[in-house]
Design a protein around this nucleic acid. Structure first.
Lengths: 229, 229
DNA sequence: TTTTTTGTTAACATTTTTGTAACATTTGAC
DNA sequence: GTCAAATGTTACAAAAATGTTAACAAAAAA
């Protein structure tokens, strides 16, 4: 069941939202000030946060920023004034959507539904936990180990992440940009060509000179893909 | 500069939106019924479509579906009634956002800005587009692969982009100018005749001397089109 | 601390793609 | 049919993209 955290200091609004959201089958928790909001957030790690901008304690901007530093929970802003909207939009705070007060409950419900239906960006075709196996190549996410013909391959953390990323999305072509974003993540003030170098390294470890062992394919002018063959 | 197509049959609303959007630096074109909307769409390939649901000719749903079949242009729905919103949300029509009538111009502007700032490619990690198939010719966007009678055709990135562009817009005639803009994009300080050369190359790879295999048609004095046959 | 490992950047080698030009062919107007 | 303009085709050089190695920096381990 999907969890929603309602951060709103006006009691009756909060209660109203809670009632309607629960009627739609979402599980809700409430926070009435900024400090508690973050506490509850970390406790529950909800799927979506309904976030009022004007709050006692920390304001919505700060909470939004804090959450977005590490989590990809959806954030739906509730806001009263146009200037606030401008700030949301202007600052690229990272909120996923906003609703202006006074809002209709229906409006909020609809936007919640739209957001929660949207798959998170980190789409993967294969569930995270299980081994990913392509013929003689096996990757065990939990143990961070990779086996080639049953033999353990020694990979660094980055090499592993890159391979993991590819194996989660076999056959799909990724541009360098996307690879940086997904594997290096936010810290990605990193030089493009690192990818090439890392891939070169990975290939050396994986593609022992056995026939037909090319797995990581170069797509010239675009990027790379992992071929399941 | 970013192009917006306004599809709205009420003249004064359309005009109002146009004025304000242009003041914000967007380039706007207008359509007042569903049929023209699609015509203009293919001609201009705008970055965003403001789409009224109630329209003479084809209604907004149909247009939305048609566009979304092959294009990832942003679509912002303008809608009057709650039931319509439910349908938008429920049917997963693929619209990116909606605004309820009566709307404030400011609201529309804000949502347009938010959408257009979002880089399209990063919306989803894995391109959601599906294969485009015309008889014996199949193109898989995510995998950047093209099959001719089941056999993989080896294309360079540029060749692929060009073919992809054509196959997204079958039957539509494009002037060289437009092709440069869409396929070569901004860097297009490029000689016209490159298109001819590239097309010649493409044809050689696609139109094996089997009868009736002409797909890319020359329109003398204008440009080219892709024929779905 | 020192040592070792890992990640980043730079530099150079190699390959592939692309842009241009030159020439050939086709088309349609006359 | 002739001719001019538009398009098709080919070859080749320039440019861009990638592979690879090495050197250095940063982080982790000892």
């Amino acid at each position: 069941m999907q969890q929603i955290l309602i951060v709103e200091d006006e009691l009756h609004i909060s209660a109203l939202l809670k009632t309607h959201l629960e009627r739609e089958g979402y599980q809700c928790s409430q926070a009435f000030d900024g400090i508690t909001a973050l506490e509850i957030f970390y406790q529950q790690l909800p799927d979506l946060v309904l976030l009022d901008l004007m709050l006692p304690g920390k304001d919505g901007f700060e909470i939004c920023r804090t959450i977005r530093e590490r989590h990809d929970t959806y954030i739906l802003m509730l806001t009263a004034r146009q200037e606030e909207i401008d700030r949301i939009v202007g600052l690229e705070l990272g909120a996923d959507d906003y609703v202006t007060k006074p809002f209709s409950v229906r409006e909020v419900l609809t936007r919640v539904k739209v957001l929660l239906r949207r798959p998170r960006t980190q789409t993967s075709l294969v569930p995270h936990e299980e081994s990913i196996i392509f013929d003689e190549l096996e990757l065990k996410p939990a143990q961070m180990k990779v086996f080639l013909r049953g033999k353990l391959v020694n990979l660094t953390a980055l090499e592993f992440d890159l391979l993991h990323f590819f194996m989660k999305n076999p056959g799909i072509v990724f541009r360098r940009e996307q690879i940086l974003e997904q594997v290096w993540q936010e810290h990605s003030e990193v030089y493009d060509r690192n990818i090439d170098r890392l891939i070169s390294q990975l290939r050396r470890k994986l593609e022992t000179n056995v026939e037909n062992s090319k797995r990581i394919i170069t797509i010239r002018g675009v990027g790379y893909k992992f071929e399941k063959k």
